[in-house]
Amino acid sequence: MTNMLEIKDLHAEVGGTEILKGLSLTIGEGEVHAIMGPNGAGKSTLSYVLSGRDGYEVTSGSITYRGQDLFELAIEERAAAGIFLGFQYPVELPGVSSTTFLKTALNAVLRQRGEDELDAVQFMKRLRVHTKSLNISDDMLRRGVNVGFSGGEKKRNEILQMALLEPYLAVLDETDSGLDIDALKVVADGVNALRGPTRSMLVITHYQRLLDYIVPDFVHVLAHGRIARTGGKELALELEEKGYGEFADAPHGSEAA
């Protein structure tokens, strides 16, 4: 069986500074991995490298996604191939209604996958299934994408997009930040509903709290541009207790940060 994702010795720079310094990580089909780590460790950078964002330059290493060299794909091709990034800070698109955005995105992805595009009626049908469970109002769908959305609405909207686009690999970047406990539960329920044997997830978080609701198979600590430690879900609890103190200093053998 091929793995969902194999990252080998990945080095990446942003604005001329190396942020990822030999990161390796393997995610199997259907697995949920959590990445934790101090602020500025490079968690978001990893998510951008996976999605192919300009300015995040890979200097060495490899990423194989479902058996394919990921670097050969443009951003939108990766999206169509099933990589979804839930944004830490979802972007506002004034004037573009959420419905229009969701339909345009879904059809763009379907087209690239060689499937039939949906007409307005088929689309609304599919949309309704998800808006209900995620508690997304019609008013939200009419408004400009993320414009005037509360923190919780923005994150629910991200999960809605993930549900519609049906990715193989979902990278969720601090989906819990800025959420109160009720909002967190709605989002976590939404994510859990999408767990399945062919869908893998990389859940990035700073806090252990989210992992009470989205229980991971593996927990990794990202520090100094590498996976500094890997464990089961109990690692998250340990980090909660001790903090990231032990990762604050450069590990032996690496250059000073």
Partner: peptide
């Protein structure tokens, strides 16, 4: 660039 990246990540050119 944020807006364009957000859209690209959702499959749009």
């Amino acid at each position: 660039e944020d807006q364009l990246f957000y859209c690209s990540q959702r499959g749009l050119t």
